[in-house]
Design a protein around this nucleic acid. Sequence first.
DNA 1: GGCTAAATGCAACACTATTGCAATTAGCTA
DNA 2: TAGCTAATTGCAATAGTGTTGCATTTAGCC
Lengths: 143, 143
Amino acid sequence: MVRDSIRILQAQGHKATRPRKLVLEVLEETEKPLSPYDIQGILRARGKYLNHVTIYRILDLLCSLNLAHKVLSSGGFVKCSLDDIEGCHRFMVCQHCGAIQEFADKGLCQEENEFARNLGFHTEYHLSEFSGLCSRCYRKWLH
Amino acid sequence: MVRDSIRILQAQGHKATRPRKLVLEVLEETEKPLSPYDIQGILRARGKYLNHVTIYRILDLLCSLNLAHKVLSSGGFVKCSLDDIEGCHRFMVCQHCGAIQEFADKGLCQEENEFARNLGFHTEYHLSEFSGLCSRCYRKWLH
DNA sequence: GGCTAAATGCAACACTATTGCAATTAGCTA
DNA sequence: TAGCTAATTGCAATAGTGTTGCATTTAGCC
């Protein structure tokens, strides 16, 4: 909820401004990654104007507080839907509808870490984006 | 080797032009991801000019032939170092020196697929970028 | 050497992202 | 509730990234 994010924002000494609330609302409503200009467009359609620089800065802040993530394959931003991500961000991106699902799994992380270590690489952070079909689109695909 | 890539290029009906050889040479030399403008800069420093549009087009071609990959976390391009990637691209990115190591593991892929399936997601393609320290930088880190 | 389709270079443009500074505002205090 | 101040936003300017159409050049063929 937007309200929760605002609380976290304030707890860290940041102000609960109108632009921040608007960006959080938009992110909250959609499960697809949005670019700064996407967000500006959505708000403009509602008669609420935000400068793009402001949106960039707000998204930076939200990411730094782990309230949002940048999805690298599309460059867009999504709200963070997990409380604790344990140094491991995972997204499943639906190729058909673009929807994002964030998830985490400790066991999988450990396995991957071990695999990397065998190759001489010391991982401390995972970024995984799986591309495929979400359950809804998969059902449609099967007719 | 550049020579191998050129052969693959020609086998698919593409010409072995001077610009393509130059881009392949640069990609071959470095294990760090390079943006189109990085490549242009490196070549310019050697007195060889390529238009940035040309470089974009060459990188598109190389990626479509699986001779190069786009590394999403940095947006740069690296040469492909694996013959068969089985629908699964993996990179380990060193946080310290930026070096990239590409790798693949069928078992890990299967495990990830299964995990995704349990969440109702049907994956056909993985993109994983692990961030950490490569063996050389890790040794330095330990003093 | 000449031919032709493919590839490159160029110019123009659109989109994305960043910086410095002036104006505004949230949240504090009285 | 009004006033204060630092934080935040908006604006203008600019830099960087990526794309398109078209004229020119070139690789690979005869």
